[in-house]
Design a protein around this nucleic acid. Structure first.
Length: 504
RNA sequence: GGGCCGGUAGCUCAGUGGUAGAGCAUCUGACUUUUAAUCAGGUGGUCGCGGGUUCGACCCCCGCCCGGCUCACCA
């Protein structure tokens, strides 16, 4: 039977499992007690000179995956990797027990091994482990990507993230930075007295955003449920109940297109603070983002593509001011123009002045908002859950955060008048009747919660994936989501390979 | 969903209407401080899938699958 090269290699390596076992090693290893991780070795001894190491001969015991092998007769070098960082190890025949040198001969790229020895520098100055004991921890049966270019095929990188992590060390950094973003937000909110909560992901009514939901089904209750598009209405129920500062960091699901900025499941931070309003949240947002930048990157100036974003200073414009400032036509409108419904409707296809203002803003301004910017005062038509501005009932006390031309946050003074909220829901129902699938449903339990009296409250949502894109200089949201949504792949066939290899 | 681009060895990529290529990986041999190790030799391909045109298609045409970018929609 003709084998593909890859299956041939698979069979060879599978057979090597028995050879390794015959030498007395367990091919899939066992508990391994190490003295250092590879990142620890590099940070602790990265600056030590050859002379210092020669004098101290620091003992280390560590584990990692083999990425390169250079064999030279009776000795050889390997690079082993852990957490995206690499360390060279040097194995020579006369420095290790005989069976361990035989084991060395059976090692393949991608195998996981443990080594014990002392640190030294080679003639060319590279920090390395002079191996005295070698042990086997896990077998790799598949070829690993090329050492020089790594794995570039984006489809394989997303589908087989484990392989991406093996082949591309920077991926570890990206996801470590993502973890820092999340923990920075969490810690900052906790320090300010916010309590972290978890609210339903499966909801029988969905709301809190304009989006189409995913539908699922509960068998024993025999009811359809929606995967939540936002936690907002539940978090405000908690405010009504007296949990005056709450936040949630969790997944939302929106049944919409996929792009470099959208994944159907994405992570949002939402937080609500009783007795605050959107002005307080503008200040808080600036503080949170500045500290996140410091915690995630070490600096408030963050490189993004060919830009440098300054999270130490968040600009503020009202939406009307932004339209006047960033209007792309030859003649910029005046503040009177953008307050005039006739002017707005003349410059947009939309049917209401408020929707027209947002439409013009999105077309003219959004991509110009490179530096972190707050845009405040949003029309009431597009803000069904926000409180109207006392001075101008056509507008709401709401703002959004932008950076790199991307929306990264949305906040407002929460509407806490149940009768006004009832009217807003009814407006939404009317929009739904006209075919707007993204309009809100009537949520009577939410109205009931407001009817008990919800304190005046400020609330905000921040897109964690998008903030992470900025902090990791990632062009696509898929680069900051470990397993982004893809169509299912075809037959893989590895079960059959294992079946065939083990029957030989 | 529309437009544009891509899919060739395990990986990274060339390629021409006329026998399918390179580097790395892999296999054999040499080599006890190498490092994109080196040197010598070898293995490896349903050229995404299915049709069509043609004496002949990886190449041209049509359809489909998968992915990327972009527009639309959204955060």
């Amino acid at each position: 039977m003709l084998l593909s090269l890859e299956q041939d290699l698979f069979d060879q390596r599978f057979a090597r499992i028995r050879e390794i076992a015959a030498l007395g090693f367990r091919p899939y290893g066992q508990r391994f007690e190490f003295t250092h991780t590879i990142p620890q070795v590099l940070s602790q001894f990265g600056a030590a000179t050859g002379e210092e190491l020669e004098a101290a001969k620091p003992a280390v015991k560590l584990a990692g995956r083999i990425l390169t092998v250079r064999r030279m007769g009776k000795a050889g070098f390997m690079h082993i990797q852990q957490s995206g960082e690499r360390l060279q190890v040097y194995v020579r025949k006369d420095a290790v027990p005989e069976t361990e040198y035989q084991l060395y001969g059976l090692l393949d790229l991608g195998d996981v091994i443990g080594v014990e020895g002392y640190l030294f520098r080679t003639r060319t100055g590279e920090l390395s482990v002079h191996v005295e004991r070698l042990t086997f921890l896990s077998k790799n049966l598949l070829g690993i990507p090329e050492k020089y270019h790594g794995l570039e095929d984006v489809e394989i990188r997303y589908r087989q993230r484990y392989l991406d992590l093996i082949a591309n060390p920077d991926v570890h950094k990206t996801f470590a930075t993502r973890a820092k973003v999340v923990s920075s937000f969490r810690r900052q909110l906790q320090e300010r007295g916010f309590i972290e909560v978890e609210t339903p992901m499966m909801q029988s009514l969905y709301g809190g955003a304009a989006a189409r939901p995913f539908v699922t089904h509960h068998n024993t209750l025999d009811i359809d449920l929606y995967l939540r598009i936002a936690p907002e209405l539940y978090l405000k129920r908690l405010i009504s109940g007296g949990m005056e500062r709450v936040f949630e960091i969790n997944r939302n699901f929106r049944n919409e297109g996929v792009s470099t900025r959208h994944n159907p499941e994405f992570t949002m931070l939402e937080f609500y603070q009783a007795y605050a309003d959107y002005r307080d949240l503008m200040d808080l947002s600036g503080q949170l983002l500045k500290q996140v930048a410091l915690d995630a990157t070490g600096n408030t100036l963050v490189p993004y593509q060919e830009l440098e974003l300054d999270f130490g200073n968040v600009r503020r414009y009202s939406m009307r001011e932004a339209v006047c400032e960033f209007y792309k036509g030859p003649q910029k409108p005046s503040l009177d123009d953008v307050k005039d419904p006739a002017w707005l409707l003349k410059h947009s296809e939309k049917t209401t002045a408020g929707e027209a203002l947002v439409d013009i803003f999105e077309r003219h301004c959004e991509d110009a908002l490179i530096q972190p910017t707050i845009i405040h005062e949003y029309p009431v038509e597009v803000s069904p859950l926000a409180k109207q501005s006392p001075a101008d009932p056509t507008m709401t006390d709401r703002f959004e955060l932008f950076a790199a031309g991307m929306e990264i946050g949305n906040a407002f003074t929460e509407l806490n008048d149940p009768d006004e909220q009832r009217k807003r829901f009814e407006m939404q129902l009317a929009m739904r009747e006209r075919g707007d699938e993204e309009a809100h449903q009537m949520d009577e339990d939410y109205l009931r919660a407001l009817s008990y009296g919800m304190p005046p409250t400020g609330g905000e949502g921040i897109g964690i994936d998008r903030v992470t894109m900025l902090m990791t200089n990632s062009k696509s949201i898929r680069d900051v989501i470990l397993f982004p949504l893809l169509r299912p792949e075809g037959e893989i066939g590895i079960a059959e390979w294992l079946r065939q290899a083990s029957s030989k």
